[in-house]
Design a protein around this nucleic acid. Sequence first.
DNA 1: GGAGAAATAT
DNA 2: TATATTTCTC
Length: 311
Amino acid sequence: MREEEEEEEENNWFARWEEQLPSPEELMPLSQTLITPELALAFDITAAGAANGNLNPALFPQPPAPPQPAACSHPAPPLSSDFESSASAAAGSGGGDEPARTLKRPRLVWTPQLHKRFVDAVAHLGIKNAVPKTIMQLMSVDGLTRENVASHLQKYRLYLKRMQGLSTSGGGPISAADAATDQLFASAPVPHQFLTRGPAAGPEPFLPYVPTAALQHQQQITAAMQQQQHQQQYYHQRHLGHFGSSTGGFDHGFLNRGMPQPAMHQMVGPAPGAGFLQLTPPPAALSVDDLEPARREDGGERKVLTLFPDR
DNA sequence: GGAGAAATAT
DNA sequence: TATATTTCTC
């Protein structure tokens, strides 16, 4: 009886989770996104070059680069794009002759969306089999590097550890830092296996994209979020000890954090010290880019998961 | 060479 | 101060 309930819970969270999933369809190759028109001009990068990052075939009838190889063959050609000459200079490298090489890649922001992808991959691999390289490949996020994943994985493991500790010890006070971390990690349900044992990879081979049905739901959700664009966000969540607590499940009441930012990508063009890669499609932007239900169902085009939803 | 952990930088 | 990146070690 209880097991059944639990199972139901599982399905529930999983279903909800899926709904929340951005699905590759909504994502675009960050490679391309990284290069803004201005930058392209500045660096004399032609449209072909930009397209090289592989654009959404649905929008751009140019089938340049296959989205697959991005994970294996090309570690991160797009991200490495040296649009940061100015940034590097600002960094004080001291060398203006070697822009691309010495350039530090922009800070990657692990947004809930991206993190979901991450968790999804880890979940399907199984926490024990989840290694940076594999995860990275599974995520198929253009521009994502193994280092990125490794770093995040490290933090994620810490988080899982915490969760386990909390559940076992009965739940202790979490520091502000932990709370903040939880926000992100809580944005995606932690596969039961992680907290329980971690038998092995799931029987499912990890789906690249989510069904259209889920997409529609997400649109609704997005719309709802837009309406309540207030800054009321997971406030209570932080005080709640989710995971194996009273509910025994996940109480991820919130789907996304309120992102008041209209722009999703912030490049370090002329502004030194402010170079971040926004990998998360804010609700507003998401909806904009996602407002094509008919198209979706009709064509079924899917985009490659990317860090930059813009364009 | 890759993974994991720690240190450092922003 | 928190998070991501980089570096070091196994």
